[in-house]
Simulated assay, not measured.
Amino acid sequence: MIVETEFTAFVAERSHALVRVAYALTGDQRAAEDLVQGALAKAYARWPRIRGEAEPYVRRIIYNDRASGWRRRARHAELTMAELPDRPAPGSLDHDATVRLVLRQALLALPPRQRAVLVLRYLEDRSIEETAEVLGCRPGTVASQAARGLAKLRQLVPELDLAAEVLR
């Protein structure tokens, strides 16, 4: 009974943040909710054995499950992108929303590891060491993947000032 109470409290307190991260990885609300639901089901089965903070454990499940999905899909499908629409003038109310949509589309075009690193580093504001721990890799890998990911974003969307936009 204690396990259920602790798990229910964790889900009530942290599920919104977990869905937000999953959405950044998937770009789709339903897929994000499904990803979090699957991760929570896996975590519940192991709940008594989780030591320390549960959230990093659940986030790691989310990242690993999403990466597995990318790998499966990459073997069976081709990714295509439509032409970007005309953009509103900077300073207009629609400009910020357009910038976010264009950046999101470019983020979705990145390889899975680069996207995960950028989400952890800039959306979740994690350190290189924390990101490396979540992804199960070395800090040098995180730094190089972040640099490559940002360079690819600059290439995909050269008119954006990424230094300001990524950190929003």
Rank of each mutant, 00 (worst) to 15 (best):
92 S>C: 12
18 L>P: 04
100 R>M: 09
13 E>D: 15
136 G>Q: 06
35 L>H: 08
7 F>E: 04
130 E>H: 01
74 A>H: 13
141 T>E: 04
27 G>V: 10
109 A>G: 14
76 H>T: 15
10 F>A: 00
57 Y>F: 14
43 A>E: 09
122 Y>C: 05
65 D>Q: 13
140 G>C: 07
153 L>H: 03
131 T>N: 10
144 S>C: 05
38 G>K: 08
125 D>C: 13
37 Q>F: 03
102 V>S: 09
8 T>L: 03
145 Q>G: 08
160 L>D: 03
152 K>I: 00
107 L>I: 12
74 A>Q: 15
120 L>E: 12
67 A>Y: 03
155 Q>S: 13
164 A>H: 04
23 Y>Q: 10
54 A>W: 00
8 T>M: 03
32 A>D: 12
51 R>P: 00
64 N>Y: 11
166 V>W: 01
106 A>V: 03
58 V>W: 00
94 D>N: 09
110 L>Y: 01
50 I>A: 09
53 E>Q: 12
159 E>W: 05
119 V>W: 00
8 T>G: 02
56 P>Y: 04
112 P>N: 01
111 P>C: 05
113 R>Y: 07
77 A>S: 15
82 A>S: 14
57 Y>V: 15
162 L>K: 02
61 I>A: 01
100 R>Y: 09
20 R>D: 10
98 T>R: 04
122 Y>R: 14
168 R>D: 08
117 V>A: 07
119 V>L: 11
16 H>G: 06
136 G>A: 10
168 R>W: 03
132 A>N: 07
95 H>A: 15
100 R>Q: 15
81 M>Y: 06
3 V>D: 07
58 V>G: 00
54 A>R: 06
9 A>V: 12
7 F>H: 08
9 A>H: 10
92 S>L: 08
153 L>E: 10
37 Q>E: 13
150 L>R: 14
159 E>I: 01
55 E>M: 12
131 T>Q: 11
49 R>H: 13
119 V>R: 04
83 E>H: 09
144 S>D: 12
147 A>L: 09
4 E>G: 06
88 P>V: 11
40 L>P: 01
23 Y>P: 01
22 A>H: 06
94 D>W: 12
155 Q>H: 10
43 A>S: 09
17 A>C: 10
23 Y>L: 14
10 F>E: 00
167 L>K: 02
76 H>F: 07
150 L>A: 13
57 Y>G: 04
84 L>M: 10
77 A>C: 12
33 E>T: 05
105 Q>T: 15
19 V>G: 05
121 R>A: 06
98 T>C: 12
82 A>D: 15
87 R>P: 02
160 L>W: 00
66 R>A: 02
56 P>W: 08
65 D>E: 14
34 D>R: 07
24 A>M: 10
42 K>Y: 05
13 E>Y: 11
140 G>V: 05
47 W>H: 02
119 V>Q: 05
25 L>K: 00
61 I>Q: 06
42 K>L: 13
157 V>H: 01
115 R>N: 05
138 R>M: 08
114 Q>A: 13
101 L>V: 13
29 Q>H: 11
132 A>S: 11
87 R>C: 05
124 E>I: 03
14 R>C: 06
99 V>K: 00
100 R>T: 15
152 K>M: 02
154 R>A: 07
29 Q>N: 07
85 P>I: 14
30 R>C: 01
56 P>T: 03
41 A>Y: 07
54 A>V: 12
128 I>W: 08
126 R>W: 11
